[in-house]
């Protein structure tokens, strides 16, 4: 199903709230997205960076996976 702008805003809020005590992580996520937007990094590059950044936060990883195109996803350890 197609995600909307509201879903993106909601996800960004979720990340911001999670790292309220460590805003550098939220800012790094914004930086990764900006690099993708400027095409400095591609989809696999984004996946690589985000999987490291959100290591230990499987719910954030699953939420991020929803934005990835078919055939791409970050594996979450069970």
């Amino acid at each position: 199903q197609k995600l909307k702008v509201e879903d993106a805003l909601s996800y960004l809020d979720q990340v911001k709230i999670r790292f309220a005590n460590d805003p550098g992580i939220y800012n790094k996520f914004l930086d990764i997205m900006k690099e993708f937007k400027s095409q400095s990094i591609d989809t696999p590059g984004v996946i690589n960076r985000v999987s490291q950044l959100f290591h230990g936060h499987p719910d954030l990883v699953l939420g991020f996976n929803a934005f990835l195109p078919p055939g791409y996803r970050i594996e979450v350890p069970k």
Partner: peptide
């Protein structure tokens, strides 16, 4: 582009960042 929803998220993130996070 092959990842329209990721582009959408990136656009929203860029706007959010430009507004101060």
């Amino acid at each position: 582009l092959p990842a329209p929803q990721l582009v959408m998220l990136a656009n929203v993130a860029a706007v959010t960042a430009s507004e101060g996070g």
